[in-house]
Write a protein that binds this DNA or RNA. Structure first.
Length: 182
DNA sequence: TAAGTGCGTCGTT
DNA sequence: AACGACGCACTTA
């Protein structure tokens, strides 16, 4: 159902940019030659994101994009995506990349606390820093930073609208006893 | 129980 | 040197 629209050669690097229309709004995906390097939530601001038509992207990138579109569609409906595009997380620091890789291991419908993620990357005391890395996640939804909660199933924070965190968790069937989900 | 304070910790700016 | 999508101990109400 979701169709790609336009592409754009961005900056001087070979970055291709796509809009992904979904029932939840227009996401924006960006690709480097290594894979999906950025996925943005729909802008809360009114008005369309200005994306200029660009050169036709290489075959491989169109393939990756098709995988992204499918994975995003699955994720937004609470299903665990089976096909992922390759991810280019190289923009992050070593620490951030370790965190993001750890997030990828959290299965659909599961959650971890910031502390558990910290332990998982072998840096148990870097709890707060893990929160920072989650906030810097360049590929939200697919890299499931929304599955990281505070201790004792408390919701914790989110960089963009908290409603996204609640929404994504609810669609995966995560409903803590407290009843923060709405 | 629920909410608020203080402090340790650590990566990032 | 200051700031967080934290966690924990400890107060108050």
């Amino acid at each position: 159902m979701i169709q790609t629209v336009k592409t754009k050669a961005c900056l001087n690097n070979h970055i291709f940019e796509f809009v992904i229309p979904t029932p939840d709004g227009k996401f924006i995906a960006r690709y480097s030659e290594a894979g999906l390097c950025e996925l943005n939530f729909p802008s809360s601001q009114p008005g369309d994101p200005p994306i200029q038509p660009g050169p036709e992207p290489p075959e491989i990138i169109r393939k990756w994009h098709a995988q992204t579109v499918g994975a995003l569609s699955d994720a937004l409906t609470g299903r665990g995506p089976d096909r992922f595009p390759p991810l280019d997380l190289s923009a992050g620091s070593d620490f951030q990349q370790r965190v993001w890789r750890a997030l990828l291991k959290i299965k659909n419908g599961e959650t971890r606390s910031y502390g558990e993620v910290a332990s998982a990357i072998g840096n148990a005391k870097a709890v707060r820093a893990v929160g920072g890395a989650c906030g810097a996640n360049p590929v939200p939804v697919l890299v499931p930073c929304h599955r990281v909660l505070a201790a004792h199933q408390k919701l914790g924070g989110f960089s963009s609208d908290m409603s996204w965190k609640k929404k994504l968790l609810a669609r995966e069937g995560v409903r803590p006893a407290d009843g923060w989900a709405k």
